[in-house]
Structure formats: C-alpha cells, structure tokens
Write a protein that binds this DNA or RNA. Structure first.
Lengths: 210, 210
DNA sequence: TACCCGATTGACCGATCGGTCAAAACAAAA
DNA sequence: TTTTGTTTTGACCGATCGGTCAATCGGGTA
C-alpha cells in the first residue's frame, strides 16, 4: 500500500527511465538485430551502466519482447479502425497514408520488426500466423466484395496488401539506400507527401479502383 | 611456377571449399547481420573447424565484403542489360521479372543486402552513392523521355524504381511473414508467377504505360 | 625414402558477451 | 536519528567472441 508514491518524482521517475532504455534499445536492435545488439551498446546509448538496464528489464530477451510488443500495439492502435468505410478508394488511401505515417513516426520500431522477420521471425511466429493473418484475412474478405461489385479490378487482395506494405515500408527500412540515391540526408515532409501521393496514385489506378 | 597443380583435385579442391564457406556465411549473415553472425556458426554450417574458415577467408570482415561483392556482381550481371529496348512496357516488365528472379535465385544474398542497408549500410555507402546511384539516374533519364513522349504517366521515375525494388524484394526479405499469412511453407513456382503477373499488371497500369 | 608445402586442426589469446551480486547511495516513513 | 525499501553501480562469473599459432597431416616431387 505504499509503493506508488515515488513513481513520479524529480525527472519523471521509473517510467521515464524505462522509456529511455526502451528507446535506446529499439535503436540498437533495429540496426543490429537481436543477436548483434549488445546490452553494453544499449546501456551506453541510454547513458546508464549496463547493470541498470538489466535491473529494469530483467534480461535481453524480455527487453526485446517488450519492444516487439510495443511496436505491434502501436500498429494495432492505428491500423485496426481502417476498414469501417466501404469505399475502396478511401480505405486503400487510408491504409497507404497510415502505414507511411507509422513508418515515419516509429522508424526504429519498424526496422526492428523488419530485422525480426529477416531473422526468420523466431519470436513472432505466433503473431504472424495468428493475429496478423486474421487481420489480413478480414481485409481480404472486404476486398473480394469490392471486386465482386466491380469496384476494382480482379486482383489477389493478399498481393495488394503485400504491395502496400512493402512499398511504404521501403522508405524506412531502406532509408540509407533511398538517401544515398536521392543524394540527401533524410526525407523532408514534402518528400514524404510526394511519395505518399505517388503510391496512392499508382496503386489505386493500378488495381482499377473507380 | 609450381603452385597451381593441386587446385582441382579430389572433391573440387580449393574453390569448392571456398564456395561452401561463402554459402554458409551468406546464410548466417543474412539471418543475423554482420555483428550477429559468428564465425563458429558459419563454420558449423559449412562443416569445418573455425580455424579453417579463417585460413581461407582471412577475417570476418573480408568474408563479409566478399559476400557483398559477390551479390552486387550477380545483380550487375543481369540488371545492366535491361534498358536496351525503348518500349516502357518491355523494360519495366523485364525489370520486375528479373528482380523477382534474382530474389528467388539468391535469397540469402538478397537478405544479406537488406540487413546491410538496415544497419545503415556501413560497408556499402560508397557503392550506394556511386555505382547504384548512377545506375538509377541513367534509368531515370530514360523514363523521363518516355514521359515526355507520352508513353507513360508523369510520375517520379525514382519512386517508380523504388516501388519495383521494394515490392519484389518483399517476397524474399519478408518470406517468413508471407509464408505465415499465406499459410504455407515457401512459395511454389506458380505462386511466384502469380505474384510477378500481379506486380506487372498493377504497376504498369498504375503508371499508365500504354 | 626423404623432403616439401599447402591444408587441417586443437589449443590458446585478450576482449566482450549476457547475467549475477553485494555494497553503497538514496529518499521517505517511523 | 533510525529504519525501510528502492535504485544505482562496480566488480565479477562462465561462455563465447574474432583471431593467432604451432603442430600435424597428406599428396607430389626428387
């Protein structure tokens, strides 16, 4: 009955420290993957001794799983309420814009996720075959309806979802390559808007959305 | 004058061993990135003692650079002679099909490249800003001509290249996710053909190629 | 047979890995 | 002040890291 009084103290207390550690870890894991990331590197980036990171997070694996969970919750919070409307143009546009926004808002989290998939998804197999698959299937059903009603071309909805996913994800994951080719350091808001508009235009027209 | 006689002996000799090591290393680096990969894991996969890997490759970094170089040469060998024709439909189709084929032929090499970019391209910065950027720019020029001649919509050619790159790369890099969502273990040739046809159709139509 | 030289390998090096622990520091309650 | 419980931290553990080295092996030449 006396444990919660010292939480929000001075510079934020426990939660603030946890946030600092999580963000530092997200950055390191995103660049080097689970195996390649070291607790020392995470601690250095967080400005704390290594033992302190373990004190708050328990273990490297627990820390990693917390990050995966946090990223998935951030996606769910935004991607879930997309299919409420019945207009393909709006839904697909929303999907593209939302996914693009998420990548810009959480670049390290997106890269972390990519690294996990690249490693064969050892910690995410259940999520992919469960939650995510169901999410995709529900959207596929909606799209099949659209196709039957002649609202768009007869394309495989799963491939369309993959197309949107990959083309938006690219600007986060391959940021280093994109920057090198465009000859600049990071994309401006205008650049992001241009890319989003391009993707909306090409993908919607490409699958014949009326 | 007496060193080359024992090269191609018994089970292939030196080159065969080097190939074994390179392929094993490609697999491990692809899954865990540069830092996350260990020489012991590579040696185990190659069926050799660790010291033998060092004997042939020199160091972890040299081995890694050899793999990056090998993968880039494989791409150059195929992607370079694509723009000889002047018909957008053929060129873009070729690009999509070729890139798709490369991903299927060299999945580990493609993933290795992805992991390197994800890590911020510490070993590939020069290549990205040099060779690759020039390759892209030459294609961009061609596409701008097409746009001027009304052969396709007025879209940013760089974004179009990124779109083709990302959407094809996805089926290698995110293979684990694709398999989980499609509910199968690996894509059949038919699946690959379907995906390729989908991408050709949507992308070509999407940027108004006549 | 004796010799040669590249190939193979186990033992070993210092550094770093993830993780533990106990002592010190600290703020609030008594 | 003393007590209590949390936070902080350096020291340390066994395991593994990338890499070195010397001893051995094994087929060709003399």
């Amino acid at each position: 009955m006396q444990t919660t009084q010292s939480l929000s103290r001075e510079s934020g207390g426990r939660e603030a420290v946890e946030h600092t550690i999580l963000n530092a870890a997200e950055c390191v894991f995103a660049r080097h993957g689970y195996r390649g990331a070291s607790l020392q590197a995470i601690a250095d980036r967080a400005g704390l001794p290594k033992a302190n990171v373990l004190y708050y997070m328990g273990s490297k694996q627990v820390l990693y799983l917390k990050l995966l969970d946090r990223m998935m919750r951030r996606w769910n919070a935004v991607l879930d309420d997309i299919t409420t409307q019945s207009d393909p143009r709006e839904v697909l546009s929303d999907f593209i814009r939302t996914k693009m926004m998420l990548g810009q808002r959480y670049p390290d989290g997106s890269k972390l996720f990519a690294a996990e998939i690249l490693a064969g998804a050892p910690f995410l197999a259940d999520y992919l075959e469960g939650e995510l698959r169901q999410w995709v299937e529900s959207r596929v059903d909606v799209m099949r309806h659209w196709i039957e009603q002649g609202k768009m071309d007869s394309v495989d909805p799963r491939f369309l979802i993959f197309l949107i996913w990959s083309s938006t994800q690219h600007y986060v994951e391959y940021g280093a390559q994109v920057n090198a080719i465009l000859g600049q350091e990071g994309l401006s808001e205008q650049d992001i808007d241009d890319v989003t508009a391009f993707l909306e235009r090409v993908i919607l027209k490409g699958c014949g959305v009326r």
